[in-house]
Computed example of a mutant assay.
Amino acid sequence: MADEEPTSIWMQPERHERSGPGRRPGYSREQITQTAVRLADAEGMEAATMRRIAQELGTGAMSLYRYLPRRDDLFDLMIDMAMSEVELSDGPSGDWRSDLTLLARQIRATSLRHPWLVGLLTSRPTLGPNLLRVHEYALGAFDGFGLDIDDITGYVGMLDDYVHSATRRELGWLEEARRTGLDPERWKQDYMGPYVRQIVESGTFPLFNRSVLDSRTAHLAPVERFRHGLDRILDAIAALITSSRGHAVGQAEEP
């Protein structure tokens, strides 16, 4: 008999076990996922193995597969648990730019708390309830403006791509700082500084020189750099909306 095709964890009923005399208490998906998130936050995704999680819970690794048939199921649950931390209002306000700014900053903050999150989000399709809640909010920010759904999904995709890329780069700097023991500013000054000065003095790359010497954004703090880039993405979306509709869009139209 052929193996059954795997089904989404969101379609699999939660297993509940009652503990009895002489039996160890059962576990839950939430307990297992919380343990995995804690390990991944502290030591990286490579630490969040079923064996290590089982050790933390005081059980055998095989027992966890009664709750999560595949490790991929664990990844989906970890993503959704992290996304539950994204705090949003009950619905969009009607000011799409304000709504998406709030959303982008929330996702960045959540991703910095969970450095493994962006890697999972951008490497696997998943549709847990909390991720859907966030995505629906992003789509809903454009609702009421008479925009085509293809345009709406495209604009949300632009925002996602920027937030994930910018946050991944910021996390890379933080990881390098942990590895070398230098904070990003010290790393740039002490390690890269002499070489950059040599490049500048050579005059070989004049536009690079301008980006180092004259650029204001090159010297912004990470959060300010993120906000600057976010504003440019939102400016681009606003221009695309204006081009497609022939006039600027700010607030949702009256019904």
Results as ranks from 00 to 15, higher is better:
Asp3Glu: 14
Glu4Ala: 14
Glu4Lys: 14
Glu4Gly: 04
Ser8Pro: 02
Trp10Asn: 09
Pro13Phe: 00
Glu17His: 07
Glu17Ser: 04
Arg18His: 06
Pro21Cys: 05
Pro21Leu: 14
Arg23Met: 07
Arg24Val: 01
Tyr27Trp: 13
Tyr27Ala: 00
Tyr27Thr: 01
Arg29Gln: 09
Glu30Lys: 12
Gln31Met: 15
Ile32Tyr: 02
Ile32Asn: 03
Thr33Ser: 05
Ala36Lys: 11
Val37Asn: 11
Val37Pro: 05
Leu39Phe: 02
Asp41Gly: 04
Ala42Tyr: 05
Met45Ile: 04
Met45Asp: 11
Ala48Val: 06
Thr49Glu: 07
Met50Trp: 04
Arg51His: 04
Arg51Met: 04
Ile53Ser: 02
Glu56Met: 13
Thr59Met: 07
Ala61His: 15
Ala61Pro: 08
Ala61Val: 01
Met62Phe: 05
Leu64Val: 10
Arg66Ile: 02
Leu68Asn: 10
Leu68Gln: 08
Arg71Leu: 03
Asp73Leu: 01
Leu74Phe: 02
Leu74Cys: 03
Met78Thr: 00
Ala82Val: 01
Ala82Trp: 01
Met83Arg: 05
Met83Trp: 06
Met83Pro: 00
Ser84Leu: 04
Ser84Gln: 13
Glu85Val: 00
Ser89Gln: 15
Gly91Asn: 05
Asp95Phe: 01
Leu102Thr: 15
Leu103Trp: 13
Arg105Met: 07
Ser111His: 08
Pro115Ile: 00
Val118Tyr: 04
Gly119Arg: 12
Leu120Asn: 10
Leu120His: 11
Thr122Ser: 13
Thr122His: 05
Gly128Thr: 09
Asn130Glu: 15
Leu131Ser: 06
Glu136Leu: 10
Tyr137His: 15
Tyr137Arg: 11
Ala138Lys: 09
Gly140Tyr: 07
Gly140Glu: 09
Gly146Ser: 09
Leu147Gln: 11
Leu147Thr: 06
Ile149Gly: 03
Asp150Asn: 12
Tyr155Trp: 15
Leu159Phe: 03
Leu159Tyr: 05
Leu159Trp: 06
Thr167Asn: 10
Thr167Glu: 08
Arg169Asn: 12
Arg169Ile: 13
Trp173Lys: 03
Leu174Pro: 07
Glu175Ser: 11
Arg179Glu: 15
Gly181Val: 10
Asp183Gly: 06
Trp187Asn: 11
Gln189Phe: 01
Gln189Ser: 15
Met192Val: 09
Pro194Met: 09
Gln198Glu: 14
Ile199Met: 15
Val200Gly: 03
Glu201Cys: 00
Ser202Asn: 07
Thr204Val: 05
Thr204His: 12
Thr204Ile: 07
Thr204Ser: 13
Phe205Pro: 00
Pro206Leu: 04
Leu207Cys: 01
Phe208His: 06
Asn209Ser: 14
Asn209Cys: 05
Leu213Cys: 03
Ala218Glu: 12
Leu220Ser: 04
Ala221Cys: 01
Pro222Phe: 01
Pro222His: 03
Glu224Thr: 07
Arg225Asp: 14
Arg225Tyr: 12
Gly229Pro: 06
Leu230Met: 13
Leu230Asn: 10
Asp231Gly: 06
Leu234Val: 02
Asp235Ser: 04
Ser243Thr: 13
Ser244Leu: 12
Gly246Gln: 09
His247Ser: 14
Ala252Met: 11
Ala252Asn: 08
